[in-house]
Each structure stands twice: as C-alpha cells, then as structure tokens.
Amino acid sequence: MSVVETKVPAGFVPVYTRPKSLSDKRFTYCPGCHHGIITRLVAEAIDELGIQERTVGVAPVGCAVFLYEFFRCDFAQAAHGRACAVATGIKRANPDLIVFTYQGDGDLAAIGTAETIHAANRGENITVIFVNNQIYGMTGGEMAPTTLPGMRTVTTPEGRDVRTTGYPLRISEMLAQLDGPTYITRQAVFDVRHVQMARKAILKAFRNQLEGKGFSLVEVVAACPTNLRIPPAEGNRWVKEQALKYFPLGDLKVRD
C-alpha cells in the first residue's frame, strides 16, 4: 500500500530500514505520539533476536488496541487490564513461545494493577512494555493514575487535585519492591539518546525471557501531544521537563 517516493541510487547502503516484524499496516496512533516509537522499538528487538516466528503479543485496550495489526506475529486481544493474566495463560500453556504484553497506564496501572503486580510477583517469564503517557488517550484524555498533579485533563478540568484524586502512581517503584520480578526499568523516548537507551532496555527485557530469567517490565514515559493539546515537539519537552520530575529514569531492579 505504501509508495516509496525515491529510488535508492547505486552506491548507497542501508543505515536504518523499517523492521521486518512490522506488517505493512500504517500505525493508527496520532501524529507525534510516542507509542509509534515504542512499538517500533519492540519490532526492532524481535528482529534483532530473530524470534518473530515464536513470538505471541498480547494487545491491550487503549490506543494500542490495534497492535495485532502492526506486527507479523501471532496476537491475542485482551480485555482491559487483563493482558498479564492472558500472557500468563499463553506462556504457561506453551513455554516455548516468547510472550509480551504492551499496555498503557490506564490498562496496566489502573484497571489491571492486580494482574500486573501478581504476574510480576510470580516471576512469570514474560515481557511487559508499559507506556506511561499520564492520560487515557483513546477515550478522550481523561485522568490516568499517572496523571501529574495539577495536570489538566477532561476529568480534571481544573488540574489534578491530589487531595481528592491522589498522586501519580509509580508502578515501577512498587514492582521493584517485590522479590518476583527480574528486571524493572523506566525509560523515555523524547530524544535519540533516550530512544537508544529504551531500545537496549526492551532488547534486554526480551532476552531475559529467552534466557528463562523471569518477569521483565520496561516502563516508557511518553507524551500524548493530542490530549496535552501541544505540538509533537513540545511533547518531547513535556516529558523531559514535567513528567520526569515524577517518573525519574533508570533501572529500578536488575537481577542477573
């Protein structure tokens, strides 16, 4: 379906090409949405490890609901928040498969908190990609458990008031307390350097599963320019200058 404008002239070699484990389908994310970068990084990890033929993804409810259309992999569509339970069922039924979930903050950190914590605590040998953009994007920009104090959303029109709606939930810190998980890290993709670090983290999270090391979760602090009502480039600055104040980057737990 895609038409490539320019022919590559002789004398050039590829530096970067679209990951092979992605399908031809256009992403359905909004312009400038960090989901697209993170989805692509997952595909790059699958390519690099050569596991496309044995990978099963679990798609969430939310902006990544169409994830199964973007990959050339088997996929299960899970109910809202239940991805880690579905992934547990798949992985336990067939441990030879490489199973990953890809979930937003509403899915993973609100309605699916219990499924996430208990899968982590059991040390399920799965890989979880957690996109924390501090908002419910798909439903129209409502407050998420990760919404920053004072941040305006359609359900906190005067800004999130922590006295009545609580504080941003730091799921990765919570999970890092547990004995079960192997690898818990928080990354971001607001510039190339951080994209490269996030890429390494996602690769490690998949490699851990291949090596049977247990539960790995990569949280990626992301921007939703559409619901923040700012241009995409400002979304990058929003993450760097606002979101990271509450969600500092780095490894929270690494067990080798």
């Binding site: 050039f12 970067y16 697209g36 994209v195």
Partner: peptide
C-alpha cells in the same frame, strides 16, 4: 531522524 520517527516511515542510507 529514523530513530525518532513514530511511524516507522523513514529508511536511511549512507553512501559507500
């Protein structure tokens, strides 16, 4: 540019 592209729309080549 390709590493930042949220739509995996860019392929990059370098001259030999």
């Amino acid at each position: 540019c390709a590493q930042m592209c949220p739509d995996a729309a860019l392929d990059v080549y370098r001259a030999v």
